[in-house]
C-alpha cells in the first residue's frame, strides 16, 4: 500500500504523495540520524553545527564517512575526499533529472537538486513505474520528508548524545537494504531490464571484493557500465 496509489491531479497532491510515500524510509533515516548525531558529538561538534551540516550537505552517507575518517586521525583533507567520493553517485542521479528540472526557475532547480537523495530519487522512479505521474513535486515532497527527519534526528542525536541508548544500527542497516530491494522490484518494467542490472551488480560486486579501492567507486563504475550497456544495446 502506498500513498500515491491514485494518479496525481495537482502539484499539491504530488507533493503530498511524495511526502507520504517517504515516511517509512524517513523513520529509518531518523534512526540513522540519531546515530550520526552521537558520532558528531563525539567528534566535538555542537548540536547547532551538526544540524547546520546536515541541512546544507544533506547527504547522510557522505557525512558519516567523513566524520568517521576524521575520528581516525586521517586528517581533514582525507576525510573530505572520502565523503565526497561517496557523494559522487549524486552526480549520476541529478544527471537523470533533466525532465523534472528543465525549464523551471533557478530557485526551483537549486531546491530540487539539494533535496535529491538516494531514497526520494528511487521512490519517484518506482512510483512512475506504478503508473503514477510522479515528477518534480513528488521528488520535492519525498525530499522534504527525508530532510526534516535527517536534520531533526542528527541535531537531537548531538544534543542528547549522553542519554541515547544503543540504537542497534547494525540491524537498522538492513532496513535500507530491504527498502532498496523493494524499490528495485518496483523499477522492473520488462525482461530486458535484467541484463543491465546483472551487469551493474556483477561489476560492482567484483570491484568491492577484488580491488583495493573504496566500494563506492565500484557502485559508480557498475552503474555506469550497466546503463552504458542498455544504451549501446538499444542502438544495435
Amino acid at each position: 500500500m502506498t500513498c500515491s496509489a491514485l494518479p496525481e491531479q495537482t502539484r499539491h497532491d504530488a507533493f503530498r504523495s511524495g511526502l507520504c510515500d517517504a515516511i517509512p524510509i524517513s523513520l529509518g533515516v531518523g534512526i540513522y540520524g540519531l546515530a550520526f548525531g552521537i558520532l558528531a558529538a563525539g567528534q566535538g561538534l555542537s548540536a547547532a553545527m551538526t544540524g547546520f551540516m546536515s541541512a546544507f550537505v544533506f547527504a547522510g552517507a557522505g557525512q558519516i564517512v567523513a566524520l568517521e575518517r576524521l575520528g581516525t586521525s586521517a586528517g581533514a583533507m582525507i576525510a573530505l575526499v572520502a565523503g565526497l567520493a561517496l557523494n559522487l553517485r549524486l552526480l549520476l542521479m541529478t544527471a537523470s533529472l533533466r525532465d523534472e528540472l528543465g525549464g523551471r526557475p533557478l530557485w526551483q532547480i537549486v531546491l530540487g537538486l539539494h533535496l535529491t537523495a538516494d531514497e526520494n530519487w528511487v521512490l519517484m522512479h518506482a512510483a512512475r513505474n506504478r503508473g503514477v505521474p510522479a515528477g518534480y513535486h513528488y521528488l520535492l515532497g519525498a525530499g522534504v520528508s527525508l530532510f526534516l527527519a535527517w536534520v531533526a534526528a542528527t541535531t537531537a542525536g548531538a544534543a542528547f548524545s549522553g542519554n541515547i541508548p544503543d540504537l542497534g544500527t547494525g540491524v537498522m542497516d538492513f532496513a535500507f537494504t530491504a527498502a532498496f530491494i523493494l524499490l528495485l522490484t518496483s523499477l522492473w518494467q520488462r525482461r530486458g531490464d535484467l541484463a543491465p542490472w546483472m551487469i551493474s551488480a556483477s561489476v560492482a560486486a567484483l570491484w568491492s571484493l577484488v580491488l583495493p579501492f573504496d566500494p563506492s567507486w565500484g557502485l559508480l563504475f557498475g552503474a555506469i557500465v550497466g546503463a552504458a550497456y542498455a544504451g549501446v544495446r538499444s542502438h544495435d
Binding site: S96, V122, P196, I199, S202, G226, A227
Partner: peptide, 13 residues
Amino acid sequence: ALPGCMIAALLAI
C-alpha cells in the same frame, strides 16, 4: 536505465 542499475550496484556492494 540508470536508476535500476544504480540500485542493483548498491545492493551488490
